[in-house]
Design a protein around this nucleic acid. Structure first.
Length: 815
RNA sequence: GCCGAGAUGGCGGAAUAGGCAGACGCGAAGGACUUAAAAUCCUUUUCUCGAAAGGGAGUGGGGGUUCGAUUCCCCCUCUCGGCACCA
């Protein structure tokens, strides 16, 4: 009887998906469980082993909960807009629509092969107009509530790829793909005001059961801080400069001001609106050069390298000291942080110190650190940054820097010199992409009326199918060339108007997809409210660490916004979030084509069977961990599936009438372990328990194993090895699927044995073991120990001073 | 630099309300089957001294609490992941 996994898989896959056994029932009386895994981007290279890993993790959980009697929703879809498809389509001269269709079909086929119990009736695809109608609708709501606005914003531009790049895509000032020097360009873009929800996004975490690491990632990313914006008069001209700082406590030591090249004062200097004694030419040159660098490049290695900068000839006056502080321009100050101007306190900030040293600006000590040094600061090591006591600071002297910070903030506000404000590291969200393959932003620009949203009844604005969608030189979206699409009428006044030609970022479609699964064909709303009330929030969301900041934050924001509109029923979308680990190549490096270490789940499944690869993926290490692919270990798991099949095929027909106490004990112990393990995603040890159980069964006389015991074993493996379980279930004579059977209950009565083995230590060192009745007391224990051949001999010549006995656990004898 | 996670055999990893360290798998060694090999099965496998009985050491390093510490506390080193010179 050989284990023909191919045949088994084909047989059951067909049955499962034609009989719909995994579909979730709206409004069912059973308790609901919404299990969500991040939907994939359907790339042309097919399902990655990383997908197989995380989806198996989710599938196992969904299958387990289904057997526990929950009405489980475990849906799947595609996040299919995006650059890789667009680029590929351009390269092979095909339509992204077609390429996407092929890729999603391939993904679905691969996912079904791997036995994932997705409810395919609920499939969504972000590129489907019926879907993105509602992505567009959400954007319009954002606009109506003043949370979307259009503004010029600098982007990194690659003149060769003709594309705007994210900061992360610019390496050393060069385009990541082609190596061309990037430029900075200001492009008018749609911005979504996520910062308006910054506090809510922190607060809302209390409603969730995210693991701490995820909560921390969210809070750190938002990074809320109290600032004060201080406005200084500029000597000799009718201008002021406003700097932003979180450390006004050191303001007695402020000796200079630095402006970002983008700062409005710089603009005024260059255009001659402000007179200065300094030569304008070098200022202009510096500014032009700086503006072409990416933010990343400007901030890279700010400390420890020579500073660049140019003096404006202007001086700001320090309110506290009346010192005339020279105003410089430098590129490490960013226009997009704070007010784009910083006050320099060289005694207490390494960057400021290096700048002051280089340009011979005075350095004043205003904080004393632990070392007690009150002298002049001449070396980098003396710069006291985060702690200490104030000196040379008037009324702040003697205060701890933290209380000094509070005190001076209040003082400056009273005096009218500064204004307290809360700022976040989180920035507003640039929502425009100058690309074809994305959701069109449903806005119309009219000369008379300005930006007007497309009326709801005209949604969706369908992405027109065109011949050419290459990006353009101008930085405009390719859609801009399609005149018959661009030219339209203003919904407001009926006059000539033009459509927005930018498309939305990838995140837009993935922000709310889990809502659409609940009602994927609804034409009247994002989803039916009653269905949402039944299913939301998502009970558990399984995803990668890389999405613990941006995707999670964006989607929580959009959901909170929808909640405020009364469109969704709960304040938070996800109750629990856990992050799955990463599978590296066998050389312990990330899988990539160039390293030649890519594992394709399909191929592996062909070789060893789906159940083996699933069990292997779960067994390889902790679900959250990072682990390397190992072919040998895979073969070990394959052997296990073969042994399991063989054991059942050969023995179940002659099952005993009753299981022995021993069999019952290990079986129920395993059931308890596996049950608790599934709740906590301890998949690797669950597989180990399966192996232990089989090892034990193989050594047991088959007469002592009943049919009921075999059934329990099959149910236990069903979530991880669904095909094998189904086959074994039919081998023992059942026709219905095992996957809707009730999860086995363990019986406590089998778990308590009457006797127990107690390890015995002498002076904390293990010396032997004794077997006693479970509730033996200390006296009985002592008796048994002294009678024990070895232990008795060891204790003969010793004086027992104390016996520590932990019931059922251990005995320690102190001599 | 900050935040988070972690360090256990030859390897992946088990075990923490403090109680037999190394489950399970891989690898390795020996054996059975075979003309032989593969596959399969059996045995051994933390290191070390010892022929054995048995002893000693041992969870990154150092200290502490405890009858007892991989687990708790303090200090240090290193590794991985995320953010990154945010004023």
């Amino acid at each position: 009887m050989s284990y023909n996994f191919k045949e088994i898989e084909n047989k059951w896959r067909e049955k499962w998906f034609s009989s719909d056994i995994y579909s979730a029932k709206d409004f069912d009386k059973r308790k609901k469980k919404y299990v969500l895994v991040e939907f994939p981007y359907p790339s042309g290279s097919g399902l990655h082993v990383g997908h197989a890993f995380s989806f198996t993790g989710g599938d196992v959980y969904a299958r387990y909960q289904r057997m526990r009697g929950y009405n489980v929703l475990f849906p799947m879809g595609y996040d299919a807009f995006g650059l890789p498809t667009e680029n590929y389509a351009i390269k092979v001269k095909r339509k992204p629509q077609e390429v996407t269709k092929e890729n999603t079909a391939m993904f679905k086929d691969q996912m079904q092969k791997l036995g994932f119990s997705f409810d395919w009736n609920r499939e969504v695809n972000t590129t489907d107009p019926g879907y993105y109608k509602w992505t567009q609708w959400i954007f319009i709501k954002l606009f109506e509530k003043g949370l979307a606005y259009k503004e010029e914003w600098p982007i990194n531009w690659c003149p060769s790829c003709k594309i705007g790049l994210a900061n992360e895509e610019v390496i050393d000032g060069k385009c990541e793909r082609c190596g061309t020097q990037t430029q900075r360009r200001n492009i008018s873009q749609w911005i979504v005001k996520i910062t308006a929800y910054a506090d809510r996004l922190i607060e809302g975490l209390k409603e969730t059961a995210f693991i701490d690491k995820v909560k921390a990632a969210q809070i750190n990313w938002i990074d809320r801080k109290e600032w004060i914006d201080i406005t200084y008069p500029i000597d000799g001209v009718k201008e002021t400069v406003t700097i932003a700082t979180t450390r006004p406590d050191t303001n007695y030591g402020a000796t200079f001001i630095v402006l970002a090249p983008e700062h409005e004062l710089v603009e005024k200097l260059i255009t001659g609106k402000i007179n200065t004694s300094q030569d304008i030419k070098p200022i202009k040159e510096y500014v032009v050069k700086a503006k072409n660098k990416s933010e990343l490049e400007r901030q890279k290695e700010v400390t420890g390298r020579d500073k660049t900068g140019v003096f404006t000839g202007l001086y700001a006056v320090n309110h506290l000291t009346d010192m005339k502080m020279p105003i410089w321009i430098t590129d490490f100050v960013l226009g997009t942080v704070g007010t784009g101007a910083v006050v320099g306190v060289p005694g207490h900030d390494i960057r400021d110190f290096e700048f002051a040293q280089q340009f011979k600006i005075p350095i004043i000590r205003v904080v004393v650190g632990k070392d007690g040094d009150t002298g002049e600061i001449t070396k980098k090591e003396q710069v006291q940054e985060d702690e200490g006591t104030m000196i040379n600071s008037g009324f702040l002297d003697g205060m701890d820097i933290r209380s000094a910070t509070k005190r001076i903030m209040d003082y400056m506000e009273e005096k009218g010199w500064g204004k307290k404000t809360v700022r976040y590291h989180l920035r507003d969200w640039i929502f425009s992409r100058q690309h074809y393959w994305g959701e069109p932003i449903p806005m119309v620009h009219c000369e008379k009326c300005g930006w007007i949203p497309v009326p709801e009844d005209q949604l969706p604005i369908v992405l027109p199918e065109v011949e050419h969608y290459e990006p353009t030189d101008t930085g405009e979206s390719p859609l801009a060339k399609i005149e018959e699409w661009v030219n339209t009428k203003c919904p407001n006044c009926g006059g000539d108007a033009k459509r927005e030609t930018d498309t939305m970022p990838n995140w837009a479609g993935s922000d709310w997809y889990y809502v659409r699964y609940l009602d994927n064909k609804n034409d009247k709303a994002i989803a039916d409210m009653d269905k949402m009330k039944y299913w939301l929030p998502v009970d558990i969301y399984i995803g990668g660490d890389e999405h613990n900041t941006l995707h999670l934050l964006y989607s929580r924001f959009i959901y909170q916004f929808l909640y405020d509109l009364g469109e969704v029923p709960t304040p938070e979308p996800y109750y629990q979030r856990i992050s799955h680990g990463v599978i590296l190549g066998s050389n312990n490096q990330r899988m990539s084509k160039s390293k030649g270490n890519v594992i394709t789940p399909d191929e592996v499944a062909d070789k060893v069977g789906v159940d083996a690869i699933r069990a292997y993926l779960m067994f390889i290490g902790p679900f959250e961990g990072t682990m390397a692919w190992n072919d040998n270990a895979l073969m070990g798991v394959k052997r296990f599936t073969e042994r399991l099949y063989k054991f059942f095929a050969e023995n179940t027909a002659t099952a005993g009438n009753k299981s022995s106490q021993e069999v019952n004990e290990i079986l129920h112990r395993t059931t308890k372990y596996v049950t608790e393990g599934f709740e906590q995603f301890q998949y690797n040890t669950i597989v180990a328990k399966y192996m232990e159980l089989l090892n034990f069964f193989e050594k047991t006389d088959p007469k002592n194993i009943s049919k009921e015991s075999y059934e329990i074993f099959i149910k236990l493996i069903a979530p991880i090895m669904p095909y094998l379980a189904e086959e074994l279930w039919s081998i023992i004579g059942y026709e219905k699927t095992v996957h809707l059977e009730a999860w086995p209950e363990y019986n406590e009565q089998y778990l308590v044995s009457s006797v127990v083995e107690i390890p015995v230590q002498i002076n904390g060192r293990l010396k032997g073991k004794i077997t006693v009745v479970v509730d033996a007391d200390e006296g009985q224990i002592k008796e048994v120990i002294l009678k024990d051949e070895n232990l008795g001999k060891l204790l003969e010549s010793e004086q027992i001073r104390k016996i520590i006995y932990i019931k059922g656990k251990i005995a320690n004898i102190i001599v």
